[in-house]
């Protein structure tokens, strides 16, 4: 009963986000109508990072507990993360085309870091596909997920520092993106962020429930 109410509430809130994101004035006047994508693009990128962090947490946990469910949770959050990562990359490329005139710009650290996540997710999933033994699969992919992690903060924090000396003009791009977040824009954005996060956890828990049932039926743990 409570679950149904929560799901219905999430549906109403997401519907509200969609409505308000289109009927209010565009959040950024210079970019115009296209800047509405920001209500969706940033939450998607946030969910991508969140999914990767959860994957990392369960990978570390798996190394300790060796529980089948922890491995499943790591995999499932990586799978959801990949979908959101693809969506964030695509919407980001469209956004970049409208604001900067190009679909892709390698000196933009945010684009690089989302691309890095896409590569890591891809490599993680292809490693899992290559392994046959379930225990080795869980163990080796957990180690890989932990090992690949340091590359992500590099592109977020370190990379902008070393490229600025080479391309000083690129930092101008960031100024175009700055939004005056105030009043309704901020509220819709925060609501959208909340809804996407809730959506992620809902999908995540659905998969976990399904896997628990599967294990119970097959006589597992």
């Amino acid at each position: 009963m409570v679950r149904t109410l929560l799901q219905f509430g999430l549906f109403l809130l997401l519907a509200a986000v969609i409505c308000f994101s289109f009927i209010t004035p565009a959040p950024q006047q210079q970019i115009g109508e296209a800047s509405r994508i920001f209500y969706y693009h940033i939450p998607m990128a946030w969910v991508t990072v969140l999914a990767y962090l959860i994957n990392l947490i369960y990978s570390i946990r798996y190394l300790k507990t060796r529980a089948v469910l922890d491995d499943w949770r790591a995999l499932w959050s990586a799978e959801i993360g990949t979908v959101f990562c693809l969506l964030a990359t695509l919407s980001g490329a469209i956004f970049a085309k409208v604001t900067w005139g190009v679909y892709w710009n390698w000196s933009e650290p945010r684009m690089l870091s989302i691309f890095m996540l896409l590569l890591i997710y891809g490599a993680y999933l292809s490693l899992r596909a290559a392994l046959a033994n379930p225990e080795r699969k869980g163990l080796l992919s957990a180690v890989y997920a932990i090992f690949a992690f340091p590359a992500v903060p590099f592109f977020v924090f370190v990379f902008p520092r070393i490229t600025e000396s080479l391309h000083p003009a690129e930092s101008v791009l960031d100024k175009n993106l700055e939004m005056q977040m105030s009043g309704p824009v901020l509220w819709i954005f925060l609501l959208s962020l909340f809804c996407f996060t809730a959506l992620f956890f809902w999908i995540f828990s659905l998969g976990n429930r399904l896997q628990r049932l599967r294990l119970a039926v097959n006589g597992g743990a």
């Binding site: 590569l119 490599a123 292809s126 290559a130 392994l131 080795r136 080796l140 890989y144």
Partner: peptide, 16 residues
């Protein structure tokens, strides 16, 4: 420890 080896090293190493 993985069965198929061929290009896996490059795929896994590249992001890192």
């Amino acid at each position: 420890q993985a069965g198929v080896r061929g290009a896996l090293l490059a795929v896994l190493s590249f992001p890192v």
